[in-house]
Amino acid sequence: MPGSKLLTLPHDKDSEADLWIKAATVLAVLAVIALCAMIVVAALPALFSQTHTPFEWVWQPYHGHFGILPMCASSLLLALSALIIAFPWALGIVIWHLTEEEPALSWARKAFGLFIRLLTTVPTVVLSFAAVFLLTPLLRTAFGGTGMCLLGATLMVSLLILPTMVLVMESGLAQPLERLCPQGLALGLSRYQLLCHCLLPQSRTTLLQAAVLGFGRACGDTLLPLMLAGNAPRLPLHLTDSTRTLSAHMALVTANEVGGAAYNSLFAAGLFLLGTTLCVTLALRRLARAKSSGSTV
């Protein structure tokens, strides 16, 4: 009927939430807002500082240079190079895990799921610790120098983001594949052919989700670059160069400096990192929405 309005139900007190539940929700949301607001406000003086701007390529606190651009670049570079290694690796693992048809290996397929799940929770500090005493000496013998370099951090960060990416890919691909299977197998296609020829070309969103999430994780990790990359505050031009990421920079500055422009640059670094991961989060949400609305698979 044109013009008719749906009646709103009268307010129902009995179906309202307990006070503590409401308070908890408000608290949780406020905490997030406070976190973001506080970092932004703290970073403002640095962003608009005329004398000690963080937007330069030199970090020499004793000569009045507080540039964090090399660290920004190094963070992005590390994340990207880790992604380049981890993405195809994760894809290979997922393809294997979803399509292994050899009955003799079905136990391996089952065990592998749990194995990946466990890998997501290996403490990064343990990973870094093992790498410092195992990988770094290897790199030292191979390339000379200290062995603390972008390459070492890249390798370990790619290992760190690998299980998460595998889980994301699998959660997006496993169900559609099972749905395709009866009919696809009845045509004489193998699971591998179904996955690689039918499903993967349709699953760009899932793959992108995995990549974006991996990128976010790689950007945010602190311990691996801090302990493995050598922490020289300059732009790495080579994989064997020592470098310092934003996260490592923040850990180092809070540990060593007290007050002044160094602190200010710390907040600028925090803001940049927060901004990056915020973009990642928003991109992931958009991808998830695109998937739930647009896909027919």
Binding site: P176, Q183, A186, C198, T296, V297
Partner: peptide, 12 residues
């Protein structure tokens, strides 16, 4: 050759 209850086309 097999045809199923619900028309399962491949997503292509």
């Amino acid at each position: 050759g097999m045809v199923f209850q619900s028309p399962n086309v491949l997503p292509l």
